[in-house]
């Protein structure tokens, strides 16, 4: 495995990570071998496997519910895709929220979508969501600026539905930079990195590789924790991707057993 780079977020830290070697591509046989093993693990319901599952270990997660914090991550992506000039973020967000509320009111969106949740909030609740999204978007832009090169905000995370199973692989990403064959994925995280943060980054790199049409891995994945002033970077070698795959399979096995025990 490539060594994990853990560094302080100083003036030139991110700029020094903005150039990477050409990335490897997984052979179709390697890709299908992993996905077949994953599909072989039973899952009673549609379940998302991601770095969060790997980093949180055996802890049982609460059922998903929208709140200002998770809406902020999701909608800050949409906001930054629409507008990346800090001065105009506020007005772009007003129009984004208004579009979402209109779509919810027209009944064209899923009843469990962020738009439906937003539409039923009062003015105070919307103000809270507004503040959380703006703070998150500005935080993200601040980090992007420090790379010294253009970082493209990602419209969403990477999702891959595993064929013949109910597993969905999710790779977190907030931005992408560099040429396509040596792309670098960027994540802006809150709080402090956990002890297994590097393992989580490998899982995100794996999901991005498997979801790529030619199986091309990101050359590097950079996790930035501005609150702690820390940066963790992982260059994705074949061993790193295998490490990520082992963690994903272990997490899937654990979840499968947990569901089976609950049913028994």
């Amino acid at each position: 495995m490539n060594p994990v780079t853990v560094s302080r977020l100083l003036d030139n830290t991110l700029a020094s990570l903005a150039v990477a070697e050409e990335a490897l591509s997984l052979e179709p046989s390697q890709r299908s071998a992993l996905l077949t093993r994953l599909a072989g693990i039973p899952s009673a319901r549609r379940t998302v496997l991601d770095s969060f599952r790997v980093e949180s270990g055996a802890k049982e997660l609460e059922p998903f519910q929208w709140c200002a914090e998770n809406v902020a991550r999701s909608l800050s992506h949409d906001l930054l895709v629409r507008e990346s000039r800090p001065r105009f973020l506020g007005s772009a967000l007003d129009s984004l929220i208004s579009d979402l509320v209109s779509s919810a009111e027209s009944g064209l969106v899923h009843s469990r979508s962020a738009a439906t949740w937003l539409a039923q909030l009062g003015p105070g609740g919307r103000a809270m969501v507004h503040a959380r999204i703006l703070t998150r978007a500005r935080h993200t832009l601040e980090v992007f600026d420090r790379f010294g090169v253009a970082v493209t905000p990602s419209a969403s995370d990477t999702y891959l539905s595993v064929a013949r199973s109910r597993w969905v692989l999710r790779g977190r990403r907030d931005g992408v930079l560099g040429e396509p064959h040596r792309r670098i994925l960027v994540q802006v995280r809150t709080g402090s990195p956990s002890r297994s943060a590097a393992r989580g980054l490998r899982v995100d790199a794996l999901a991005a590789t498997l979801a790529h049409p030619r199986g091309q891995a990101p050359a590097r994945i950079v996790g930035v924790w501005p609150e702690s002033g820390l940066v963790i970077a992982v260059d994705s070698s074949l061993d790193d991707l295998r490490g990520g795959a082992r963690d994903v399979l272990r997490a899937a096995q654990r979840l499968s057993e947990m569901t089976r025990n609950q049913a028994a």
Binding site: C67, E69, P123, G125, R126, A127
Partner: peptide, 8 residues
């Protein structure tokens, strides 16, 4: 109302 929308 604002508090009710946030987990925090």
């Amino acid at each position: 109302d604002a508090a009710s929308s946030s987990r925090a």
